[in-house]
Design a protein around this nucleic acid. Structure first.
Lengths: 156, 156
DNA sequence: TATACATAGGTCAAAGAAAGACAGAAAATG
DNA sequence: CATTTTCTGTCTTTCTTTGACCTATGTATA
């Protein structure tokens, strides 16, 4: 298992179920895992972004810290956020994957449905020789269509 | 006995009876068999394809791996049929819609999943100014990716 | 109060690790 | 001997880890 995954799991463990907020000391954590402090930043920037459903803030200097807050939205809110703000007219493969996984983690979709959706917007699904931006535009449409289908499902 | 056959047997051995999923390290395996790492890819691409009843995925970079999932025996023939005969390299919107409905009726998919899939290959999802045949080719890939995701469900 | 020092976290680039793509050589097959 | 299958090597892409340097904040001090 990668160190990044271990640190990610550790932070999520700290956060627990009910608690949606946690505060860490970057240097302490790095010390604990015998790694460079910037490794912590790497974990945060690859696994605790808004797309992943987290927002972070920090304070430097003596008594500094990093605070990680888990954003919890209703299914409705999350869907409308994705449809109206996040996806827009183009989205890259990696972001799309992350968003799909997040939909499962927050309970909007089952794990199976999230995987289905992730597959539809994955690189293999768009393995055609066209410029990346064209793929991203189309990917946005496909994802949008699926999210609308989910939203309709919610209405009923 | 050829090396490829040996490696194939080895992987299937790893997979065992009940376990229908296995994770390998490409470099390690190549080291073990004293061959080029790309030899592993050759084995995978000639003996662990969907037609053979397997779906693979992988992760690059530090701590990377290749995961091989065995598709349920009952689903295998159906999957090959869908991928090769029914979908092929291109499929138009209407045929895709019909196929989704059939998959729901035959119980392969839930009604909700069928709707999700149908949305992903619907005309609105492909409303871009490119020739119809290009869309059909892409639609086939999207559909294919989703079916492979479904085939991986409930392994074992 | 202005300055200096200590304590944090932030950024970024380079190195490392692992898999993918693909062309071409070698071997087996008919 | 021609063709197909197997195997190797090289280059590319992706993800992770480390380290060097930068910036912000708190605290002590002249």
């Amino acid at each position: 298992m990668r160190l990044s995954d271990t640190i990610e799991a550790f932070i999520k463990e700290m956060m627990g179920e009910e608690q949606s907020e946690v505060e860490i000391k970057r240097n302490e954590l790095a010390e604990f895992f015998h790694c460079a402090p910037s490794q912590i930043n790497y974990v945060l920037s690859t696994r605790f972004t808004p797309d992943h459903g987290y927002v972070t803030s920090s304070q430097r200097g003596g008594g500094g810290y990093i605070r990680i807050v888990q954003v919890r939205r209703s299914a409705q809110d999350q869907l409308s956020y994705l449809l109206n703000e996040r996806i827009g007219t183009a989205i890259d493969a990696q972001s799309a994957q992350i968003l799909c996984r997040q939909l499962a983690q927050s309970g909007v979709l089952s794990l199976e449905d999230a995987r289905l959706m992730a597959a539809a917007v994955s690189p293999p699904a768009f393995s055609v020789p066209v410029p990346e931006q064209a793929k991203n535009a189309l990917r946005a449409k496909v994802m949008r269509a699926m999210l609308l289908a989910v939203a309709q499902r919610e209405e009923a």
